[in-house]
Design a protein around this nucleic acid. Structure first.
Lengths: 190, 190
DNA sequence: CACGTAGTGATACGGTCGTACCAGAATGGA
DNA sequence: TCCATTCTGGTACGACCGTATCACTACGTG
């Protein structure tokens, strides 16, 4: 075998360029040539490592999701060995808010893919699974009769994400609103 | 003056084509030529009635918002002369869900514009005003100490919109979740 | 030390993009 | 009637798009 190269590193470098462009101006700004320029590699490399443009956008999204899940699990793990259910739930909900540049960019990229999710069959599969999974996890953390509250809590966090991204609400306020809901669902007496 | 033509009708016809394309495939599908074909008019007319492509997208968004507000007010008015606060609030929240094709398309178009809202200064102004206005309205309908609940309720409805659009949740379930929250905030005793 | 393979680099092609341009058709007021 | 003006239609241009192609370099293995 000739010249060995770190494929994953190359793909990640290119994917990161896709993220930056998509977060800043939507998917239409993530053209092959522009992504190549942003990544600092010849356009030919995108063909070699991803294939067509659609494959590139798909691959970049997969890497983004992998990163996101890893970050989220890391933050949950940081809560300690036997964290209180409330703190686990809080950590999951806060994962949906753009509380740092990493989450903010990830959520912007997701927003850029949003409409395409609906039209593209391949993409639709890639998200229809995730949030029911989240719902189930949250349901585990709340008393069983709170199923409705769990679902609405998740939706609320997602909605707050939008408001914060658009600058309509501060991140601090969003966190405060979530904490107020948690206060209600986890009474101090318990 | 020569040949008089209904400008508003032309603009609306073209804008509707923008909506259909943007809702189906995102803003990048709304090219000048494709919009013209979808609207059934020569591409030259888009130039004449809107100017540049950016002006077209901006104008189409304005028309969309005007339509949305009119529809919403109409539905609120349909509640009768002196509707109960709970019903007004419910109507406003349901306006955020894709409960019919009109709302669904409008919300999809908004989603298509979302990332662009953040980058484009002209667009950012066009939305930063609206939802604080909504927050204030909702605050009026709830007891004053429920400010946090009002804000979270609004966020929850927005989050449910995303889940329903993505097919992760049925519209009926979303309405049910909102009604459960309203049950809590408007105790039967009151 | 070759040789076959992994990876690079440049370029070319057909298509579509947004927009400028211009000649002409239609029509209300003089 | 005829002119000024509103509106239409077609076309042309340069830029950029995604992708295919092909010659080339570099290197682990035999």
């Amino acid at each position: 075998m000739p010249r060995q190269v770190d494929h994953d590193e190359r793909r990640r470098r290119i994917a990161a360029a896709v993220w930056r462009l998509a977060a800043a101006g939507g998917l239409e700004d993530a053209t092959v040539r522009r992504v190549a320029a942003e990544a600092g590699v010849p356009a030919r490399q995108l063909q070699y490592y991803f294939g067509s443009r659609d494959d590139l956008l798909l691959g970049a999204l997969d890497l983004l999701n992998r990163d996101g899940e890893a970050e989220a699990q890391q933050r949950v793990a940081a809560l300690g060995a036997t964290p209180a259910p409330r703190e686990v739930l809080r950590s999951i909900l806060l994962e949906l808010l753009p509380l740092d540049e990493s989450r903010r960019q990830r959520q912007l990229v997701h927003a850029a893919y949003f409409v395409r999710f609906l039209a593209d069959d391949g993409l639709r599969e890639r998200i229809r699974d995730t949030p029911p999974e989240l719902e189930a996890l949250i349901a585990l953390l709340l008393p069983e009769q709170h199923r409705d509250e769990a679902d609405f809590l998740l939706a609320g966090a997602a909605g707050l994400q939008g408001a914060v991204l658009l600058g309509q609400m501060s991140a601090e306020r969003a966190v405060e609103l979530i904490d107020r809901q948690l206060d209600r669902l986890f009474p101090a007496a318990a």
